[in-house]
Design a protein around this nucleic acid. Structure first.
Lengths: 226, 226
DNA sequence: CGGTTGTTTGAACTGATTCAATCTGTGTGG
DNA sequence: CCACACAGATTGAATCAGTTCAAACAACCG
């Protein structure tokens, strides 16, 4: 389980500021997958920090389908802002969250200007990821998109693909919602990747048999994640 | 031509902070379309403010193609950050820019904490646009994507579609690079939209004959832009 | 055991790409 | 002013990647 104080100090925040941040009044929430946690249009007056599990921001597209526009892994969070969010929030896997009020955050932001700067850096990283996802959806073919998501997920879950298998946290439908396809096609891509010997599946476990090849297929350049 | 001080105060910044920001030493730059202005991997040590014209952030995709991941209209800007940018910058139409150094910005950020907050809000808006683009590329069909870009562009160029025609700033290749298609298909979509009487083209001018219908095709909900 | 959620497969279809050729408008130099 | 070059727009034909619809199968859980 990710500890907030540790995460903050390890990301370069001063002990004082980190302590102040992690002392914000908050409630501990557990979110089940599939059940929406916040609907599109919800008030963005909360600070959310993820301890375990996986959260997704999603947007409906007008017809029944939806697009997942961002993921949050343990140690990451969702920051507050003015107004309503144009996206909903949903758990991918059962998640433990710390949820605080934006109003409790503000005085701390004023006291420690370094935190605003810190938040800005976090937003930068999320933006870089968003750009990469756009390239993924806009320019790569079906197989590259799935491969890219696998590479990014391994990296963000801190799985070393050379040494260990990764427990794939997504259903094929969710992968489809991230990569802009249908679950039927995601299934075929997975079968292809396995037939080519790039990955091996064992239930939800994914073994990276040839990670370099997977990275090549995905044209995955991990620098945007740092 | 967009004035920096005016833009800042109109966006809610205090006169003092706005004046300090607009007094940063900077050079005036004119960028021609098609000629890359900053290559992918450039140092993010500049503050850029757009006075006239249109700038695009783009990423190459490994093979020869590229994806435009963000646009900057007059009155908007590109903020600095640590490290290298994973994207390049290019002009869509001839642009007049103010370019300053990040090192000159820092002391002002420290003096006026409200500016950090202000930058954060700008980043929020760009993020919301990025999310919408993801939905566009991932979930909408070819025609909806082009229609959506037209709606968003009209809004961001402050064209009133009921009253005036819009000078389309993009080549069909650029629209393809934004919406993740080929220029050939963009051309067919335009022809379709015109055949349906939704738009009328007159050279680069686009007349919105039935803007409501265009918005419906695009499922365009402008709230994410505010 | 029955219900639910997720995965897999097949067949038919279609939207978009690819490749190639042609056309149009604009700017440039002789 | 004309000839030429060049970027961009347009069109056609063939192809293909991914969708759609439908059905079967597997895994999990109370």
């Amino acid at each position: 389980m990710m500890d907030l104080f540790d995460t903050l100090t390890r990301s370069g925040l001063s002990e004082k500021a980190a302590k102040a941040l992690s002392k914000i009044p908050h409630k501990q929430v557990q979110v089940d997958p599939r059940r929406p946690f916040r609907e599109p249009g919800h008030d963005r007056d909360e600070v959310i920090f993820i301890q375990t599990g996986l959260l997704a921001k999603y947007k409906p597209d007008g017809s029944g389908r939806r697009q997942i526009v961002a993921l949050r892994f343990p140690g990451e969070g969702i920051l507050p802002a003015k107004g309503k969010a144009p996206y909903g929030i949903q758990a991918i896997t059962k998640a433990d969250l710390m949820v605080g009020q934006a109003s409790d955050l503000e005085p701390i932001l004023e006291e420690y200007p370094e935190i605003a700067n810190f938040f800005y850096k976090l937003a930068e990283r999320q933006q870089a990821i968003g750009y990469e996802w756009l390239v993924n959806c806009g320019r790569r073919d079906s197989m590259a998109r799935v491969a890219h998501l696998l590479c990014e997920t391994a990296e963000r879950m801190k799985v070393d693909p050379a040494k260990e298998a990764m427990r794939n946290p997504f259903t094929q439908q969710q992968i489809a919602d991230i990569t802009g396809q249908t679950s039927v096609n995601v299934n075929r891509v997975f079968a292809d990747l396995e037939r080519q010997g790039v990955i091996r599946r064992d239930g939800r476990l994914v073994h990276f048999e040839e990670f370099d090849e997977l990275r090549r297929i995905a044209s995955f350049q991990p620098d945007y994640l740092s």
